[in-house]
Computed example of a mutant assay.
Amino acid sequence: MKTTLWATLTANGNYAQSSPDNPPKKEALEDFAAQAKAAGNFIVGRKTFQEMSDPSRVSQEEMVNTEGPFAGIDIVVLSKNIENIPGVTVVKSPQEAISYLSQKGHLTALIGGGGDIHNSFLEQGLVDEVIFNVAPVLEGKGLNLLIDKDNYRFKAVRLLDCKPLGSDVVQLRYAIDR
């Protein structure tokens, strides 16, 4: 199964932290929805899922029902603490998420969020492709995406595509050889 990690970075390379003062760009969110529809699924962490289903944005029920933005999409939430969330599949590990989606017949898994989730897939060498949306903002102390949090090592990537999404957001797509 091909796995694609989708993330937004700041212009100075941090993992972008959205907040009311720094909301995600509409173009990046629209791209995520398009990528999720193309894959037929996405994997997120519990905190990211809760933020996505914040009632000020969209209710959890609307998100997974037949009329929500992710209707018909398999949503997999990675959580070690929560056993059940109505309308989604909850798993405890990246391998379990990939196995579940593979058993459902998906050829691609979209890893959509949470720095911890992204880093766990990267550290375990489970990512074939990364999509970075570079947001037009500089951020102070931030989080990083890491292939190994304990060692200083490199992993070569190959540029597949580069395109503007609008509102000064640039999307970079890289292949990672596993």
Rank of each mutant, 00 (worst) to 15 (best):
L5R: 03
W6F: 14
T8Q: 14
L9S: 13
N14K: 14
S18G: 10
P20I: 00
N22T: 13
P24T: 07
F32L: 09
F32E: 00
A33K: 15
Q35D: 06
Q35K: 13
A36F: 14
K37E: 10
K37R: 15
N41A: 08
I43G: 12
V44R: 02
G45V: 06
K47Q: 10
K47L: 09
F49N: 06
Q50S: 10
Q50V: 04
E51P: 03
P55N: 07
S56V: 11
N65H: 14
T66S: 15
T66K: 14
E67F: 07
I73N: 06
L78C: 08
G87M: 07
G87F: 06
I98P: 06
L101D: 03
S102M: 01
K104L: 10
I111Y: 03
D116H: 08
H118G: 00
N119Q: 01
N119C: 03
N119V: 01
G125W: 00
L126W: 01
E129H: 05
V137H: 07
L138K: 10
K141Y: 06
K141Q: 10
L143D: 02
D148W: 03
Y152P: 02
Y152H: 06
K155Q: 15
K155W: 01
K155R: 15
A156Q: 12
L159P: 05
L160H: 07
L160V: 12
R173L: 02
Y174P: 04
Y174I: 09
